[in-house]
Design a protein around this nucleic acid. Structure first.
Lengths: 234, 234
DNA sequence: ACAAAAGTGTTGAGAGTACACCCATGC
DNA sequence: GCATGGGTGTACTCTCAACACTTTTGT
């Protein structure tokens, strides 16, 4: 800044945008990657579906705000959540300047609670392949979140976060296939996932269902989520 | 939100944090990865070095604000810049709640302009391996930026962004070695980078310096920045 | 015994890694 | 002619990808 003055350093000199967090909540339901949306009650975009989110409280960290929104919508805490991107184009909210810090969360279907106060029409799960019209720039945020999720699945082991604590290898492979949108070879998948040593056997076997019972696995607490792939420049 | 009202939707209901952008500006200078810092003139952290940044204007996009800060400090436009992460822990600025959207930029040394209005003590380049004391949580932001830069170098070809328009393969290899912090094999590096087809020969040769003149290359405009590496799950 | 899902090995191809010498130029 | 940096090829290893049959259980 060539003509810098103390006024440039004063936060109160500038009109402040509002800050929100939006949380893209993914789960695997009915063999589809689905996202939780809420129907807005008030303008703008009244009766239009939107990504759950809200304003950041003045003394609350961004992560806490995201976790709070997630808990309000799903009753779930302690699941995988990470910052996605910050969207702040002027005009994305017609009322005023709003900058939103988007997060994405992976929630196993079995821990989702239906909140007692909810009436059913307020929130809903939607398959990513069949989304309704969305408020604001939320279509862009969802597209970005899906790209990031697919990408992360390729070099980390976050896929587990969408499954119950214990699961079979076939269930895990299904989850990967759903998110990546392509079929995987069973033998190669098993060899690779077991070689990465992020799983441990429970010793139990799944009893329900037809056919031969499958070994149940759990994700190892001490496993490193980042699985090193080959680098472009070694 | 179980007890959602229209008030929850009103942006003016909540006290608003300030929003800044901070731009981590990297360049290769004297065979080191260096970062541009500015010395603060006013409290808090007066006379302490900080990442260049400033408040986001109310009608300016985040990207524009970041590009503006970059241009103000370096006189440079049209270089590589990407959003890094948003830092918003309460108390990171002692005056008031400030959320900062951090960007990082890669600037070739040869395009950096010394701005006429600057007195030399105001801004300075610092090697990442020898940083001064930093204001706010800027040490954390720099560490995160370096991690991201190294990581990106492994699966994209952003390394070119730190070099002049035309360069020799040895210069490019040096750049990668500096950032990754390890020596690379000359033959393997050349084979790999040429195989990725992101370069084209200029036909010219570098004349200055001792030894055999080196072929000069440029980055292909039509090259895809993302170089696919092998995936964890195919 | 048969239906259904689980589980298991091998081979060929391609990429990665390690490694040492000749080439073009300036002085 | 020698010092300096530029440029090149090959052999081994490892990972990836493709592919089909046997095993265990319930009915």
């Amino acid at each position: 800044m060539t003509t810098e003055t103390i006024a440039d350093y004063n936060p109160n000199r500038y009109e402040r945008p509002s800050i929100t967090v939006d949380v893209v909540i993914f789960s695997l339901i009915n063999n589809q990657l689905q996202v939780l949306l809420v129907k807005r009650k008030y303008p703008p975009f009244a009766d239009i579906w939107a990504i759950p989110g809200g304003f950041v409280r003045i003394d609350e960290s961004l992560e806490d705000a995201a976790a709070r929104e997630l808990a309000e919508e799903t009753g779930v805490t302690n699941v995988y959540i990470e910052q996605l991107y910050t969207f702040g184009t002027p005009g994305r909210d017609p009322r005023t300047r709003v900058v939103t810090v988007a997060y994405f969360a992976l929630v196993p279907q079995d821990v989702i609670k239906h909140r007692p106060g909810d009436d059913a029409s307020e929130t809903g799960w939607f398959p990513m392949c069949n989304l309704p019209e969305l408020a604001f720039d939320h279509d862009e945020i969802l597209a970005y979140a899906q790209t990031r999720l697919r990408y992360k699945l390729e070099y980390t082991s976050v896929g587990f976060q969408l499954l119950p604590d214990i699961f079979t290898l076939t269930e895990l492979q299904k989850a990967y296939e759903i998110i990546l949108g392509e079929a995987l070879d069973k033998r190669n998948f098993r060899r690779k996932i077991l070689a990465s040593e992020v799983l441990e056997e429970t010793g139990e076997k799944k009893k329900e269902g037809e056919g031969r019972p499958a070994m149940l696995y759990r994700y190892r607490d001490d496993a490193v989520a980042e699985v090193k792939t080959r680098r472009l420049f070694p």
